[in-house]
Amino acid sequence: MSVADTAPRPRKSNTWWLIAPGAIWMALFLVAPIALIVYVSFWTQTTFKIEPTLTLTSWKTFFGSDTYISSLFTTLRIWLIVLVTTFVIGYPTALFVGLFIKNKTLSTVLLVICVIPFWTSFLIRVLAWRPMLGKEGAINIILQKAGIISQPIEALLFTELSVIIGMTQIYVVFMVGPIAFMLGRIDPNIIEAARDLGAGFGRIFRKIIFPLSLPGVVVGAIFVSVMVLGEFATAAALSGRKVNLLGNIIVTQVGSLKWALASVVGVILTIVMGLVIAGFLRIVDLKREL
């Protein structure tokens, strides 16, 4: 018997048949469309149609227009603010749920309470802020009844503030979840030991708790960033068209069949998001931490 005969054939694997449909689907309907955005951003746009003749016109239009440039900055500003508000508002909740509640059932119940709003329509959740923030809205009525203000605050609705409030409420849970998860994994003995050594809570928090929760913060920040950067509906519903994010520009441009310019904005959005995620991943090596 020759050597070649004695080499067993590797078992015929069905792995490729199992993975192919999903991988092909994603390649065709996720990777190809995104690549196409880049390609079409260089196409020639006329009033009524778009042609695959490569040009930089749409890019020049974008960077030559104050409206578009300012929408880029509005997007970045709102993203940063919402990132900070979700973190500041979410962290104490995560601290309570993940670290202070020793009872597993209770912390699960609290997390479920946080997640329940996601079972209603996203748009309804956005819309629900209107009767809250309006001139005759719940907040103004409560504040007036309490005698804190005499005149209703009009700046609550249809401003950048209302967009930020709405987004914070919708996305804060994505910050709470990962942080609470990381905090829940902290070995209580470490904190106990530090306390025995005479460290106060502030010191323990700075030296132990916060560093250990950092991977959760990064994951939460990535979730919130991706969603806020791609947002347009909240801005459309709560700003009265005063706040224009990159997403809103894309919607308007597609609405008027300006595909090339919409694609330019799409590419810019993709780049911004890539940079943001890459930046966060540099802070913490997630593969090692999780």
Binding site: T6, A7, P8, R9, P10, R11
Partner: peptide, 19 residues
């Protein structure tokens, strides 16, 4: 498991590549 080298016989039949 499939061996890297060598063969397995069962009842006189080479079953190395049989599932």
């Amino acid at each position: 498991e499939t061996p890297d080298r060598g063969r397995v016989f069962f009842n006189g039949r080479d079953i190395t590549n049989i599932p």
